[in-house]
Design a protein around this nucleic acid. Structure first.
Lengths: 338, 338
DNA sequence: ATCATGCGTGTAATCGATTCCACGGCGTCC
DNA sequence: GGACGCCGTGGAATCGATTACACGCATGAT
């Protein structure tokens, strides 16, 4: 592949001049510029990003480490992150942690070895030593969706408290009293917050949340299945299962169907994170929708601010309830569908 | 961040020795090795991958350009590609083309500028000049899922002919005669092949495929909706709609529901590409499943072979029919579910 | 004793860019 | 007319690694 030297030779100028033309430095004669441009064209020259990065100490690349690409919520997040990053002149390298802390560490290490300019992380756990060292090492970092208390970086996330409250009120209004939740990993903030919001909302309506109605999940479908089976095996099973993410809701649906039960007649179901498929499940599933695109944009902007020396902002956006038919009632009071 | 010079100074040796230790070159004394390792530990040194890549002219990175990350099929493919690549010591950078050829070109160019060692592509179109230049430029390339006739690189894909034949036979057995298809873009091989296989299978059973029963889609949900609306507006609408990918099936479902019709009673639906959600849609959707994990693995291995100087193999694996309830009949004859 | 061998190590070139500094030529001003 | 400054340009250092080559020293063969 042609290098800057080849271009310089072809154009009959020095490499310095070629570099100046390529970076639109002002002090280059019009004549030299056209000669260089012609040579670039003739050779099909493209600057070597690796060499450039070595010299300038910046890669114009962001790392995005997410907990699970197969979760449509994160897929969508990744897509919007890339879009916004591209608009700001950055590329994105995605690392999929599969909810495994050691894989997350692997990706973070690899990304830092590649000298990415900044890191966007949705941590799968409570924070490894490595993660704490990242910022000390000087790599700009922003948390998105989930964060780690005690690590002082900007956080961009959705607040589901209001939406969960709306959900519980909706369920209560439909006559449900025994509500159960499938929680996410305790090591994640979203795992805890959603349970807390749920508990709080129930307390507000004078409802109890017994320990047996709190299933422990890990944000994966299989755990939703297991937790739901346990609920259904109880002497007094819950009337509603609320899954803290969409994959566990899928698992819950599996388990309910395997038992030969129907939603919402035999048991109601709701989920955190809305996805297009929820419109077409049997029945359509009531869910709490996050403003994914806005979150992605805000996160990228915060990271770019950090990288480029501006003051980044933590952002919290409200999630909202989308009522469908999986909890019973005519879905006439639904705010939105798709 | 500490560089190799710092380590050399700390250990009291030259940078050459440090480099030798790091690359486990044999001729280093045990004593020097321990001193270097201690220095590496003390400084928390990590080699700069950018500098290393510049010198060695390899990045241990593969580029994966897919047509649409939001399509669960490609998400899954990407996930398995990363997994296999990691096992072989490569990282993966994903470029999402969003079915837009110019975005695809943008990603290919960016990836090549970064000097990735090889490129895995599922082309969104019939092949831009850029794509043709890639291999000429010396970058190893492998096509996965879709390919471009006339570009001589290994292709790893699924063959749906048999499964489509099974599907049409299944539909015929259920008494359906008027079958329609929502095709993918004519510029993609998968867009054409699926229609051809469908037409062929119908001919085999003596059924006609009128032009009005061939909807033009672009693999996105909205196009599935439009095509289905057109089918439903026909004087004699089809009894079955077969969508050439899962997103168009989602759109078709939207359109059918918007008309107040029911699947499969009023109209049957089937899709190419099986995804976990199809088990839980209303009704569960009959689909043709590709061996995604195997495709991903075969593609990465072919690319690694090409990069590392071995002889790569093109691979074609059979897709298979998964019967569910969306085409009518008791789904007792289903081969597999999930 | 002499010389070849080989091992461990360091010096320096190199990858492909960016950028500081110096230099020659020209115009301007006094 | 000479001093000064500006402009366009090239030479060379630099980023952080890898690696060819050379060198010093110990060892073994002759």
């Amino acid at each position: 592949m042609a290098s800057i030297k080849d271009v310089a030779a072809e154009a009959g100028v020095s490499v310095a001049t070629v570099s100046r033309v390529l970076n639109s430095h002002p002090s280059v004669s019009e004549e030299a510029r056209t000669r260089v441009l012609a040579a670039v064209e003739a050779l099909g020259y493209r600057p070597n990003a690796v060499a450039r990065s070595l010299r300038t100490a910046q890669t114009r690349t962001l790392g995005l480490v997410i907990s699970d690409v197969l979760n449509p919520y994160f897929t969508e997040l990744a897509r919007f992150v890339e879009e916004e990053a591209r608009a700001l002149g950055y590329s994105v390298i995605i690392g999929n942690a599969d909810e495994r802390p050691e894989l997350q560490d692997h990706h973070i290490r690899t990304l830092i070895d590649r000298r990415i300019d900044g890191l966007l992380v949705s941590p799968a756990d409570g924070g490894s030593p490595l993660m704490r060292d990242v910022t000390l090492g000087g790599t700009p970092m922003v948390f998105v969706d989930r964060w780690i208390p005690g690590i002082d970086v900007p956080v961009v996330r959705a607040d589901g408290t209001g939406a969960v409250k709306d959900l519980v009120a909706h369920l209560h209004g439909l006559g449900h009293r025994r509500l159960a939740i499938i929680a996410g990993p305790a090591a994640t903030t979203t795992g805890n917050e959603r349970v807390e919001a749920f508990r709080e909302a129930m307390r507000g309506l004078g409802l109890a949340l017994p320990a047996a109605y709190i299933g422990q999940g890990d944000f994966q479908a299989a755990s939703g299945r297991r937790a739901t089976e346990q609920f259904l095996a109880l002497a007094e099973p819950p009337e509603v299962v609320f899954a803290a993410d969409n994959l566990m809701a899928l698992g819950a649906l599996d388990a309910i169907r395997a038992r030969g039960l129907r939603v919402p007649d035999d048991i109601a179901l709701a989920a955190f994170d809305d996805i297009p498929w929820f419109v077409h499940t049997d029945p359509p599933i009531t869910a709490i929708a996050q403003p994914t695109a806005d979150l992605a944009r805000a996160a990228v902007r915060a990271l770019a601010d950090l990288i480029e020396g501006r003051t980044p902002q933590s952002v919290t956006l409200p999630a909202r309830l989308v009522v469908r038919r999986s909890c019973g009632g005519a879905a006439t009071n639904q705010r939105s569908d798709r």
